[in-house]
Computed example of a mutant assay.
Amino acid sequence: MPFTLTITASPDDIDELGHVNNAVWVKWIQDIAVTHWTTIASAEQQAAYIWVVTRHEIDYRGNVGAGETVTGETWVPEPPRGARFDRHVRFTGPDGKVKVEAVSTWALLDRATGRLQRVRPELAAPFLT
Rank of each mutant, 00 (worst) to 15 (best):
E44Y: 04
I29M: 13
V52I: 15
W37K: 04
V34C: 03
V98Y: 08
E78I: 01
V98R: 11
T74P: 01
V89R: 00
I29P: 00
I32E: 00
D86P: 01
K99V: 15
L109W: 11
E101R: 08
V98A: 15
A66V: 06
V24M: 10
W51G: 07
D95M: 06
A112E: 15
G93N: 10
V100L: 03
V76A: 05
W51Q: 01
I32R: 01
L116C: 05
P94Q: 14
R81A: 14
L109Y: 12
W28I: 07
T38N: 12
W28L: 06
R61C: 08
G114S: 05
D59A: 11
F91M: 02
K97M: 13
T35G: 10
R61K: 15
E101K: 07
P77T: 01
G93K: 13
A66S: 15
V89A: 12
V89Y: 01
T105E: 14
V26C: 12
T92C: 13
H36V: 04
V98M: 11
V24L: 05
G67A: 00
S104E: 02
W51F: 12
V100E: 01
H36A: 04
W28V: 08
E57W: 00
V26D: 06
Y49A: 01
A83R: 10
G62Q: 05
A107S: 12
P94W: 06
L116R: 12
W37S: 08
H36R: 00
S42A: 03
R81S: 15
T35D: 15
D95V: 03
A102T: 05
A66M: 06
L108T: 09
V76D: 01
E68F: 06
R81L: 14
A83T: 09
I58Y: 05
T113N: 09
E68V: 12
W25G: 08
W37Y: 07
A48G: 10
A48K: 14
A48C: 10
Y60F: 14
P79E: 09
I50P: 00
V52S: 04
D86L: 13
K99G: 00
V34N: 02
K27N: 09
G93S: 12
G72L: 11
D31I: 03
W75C: 06
G82H: 05
G67P: 04
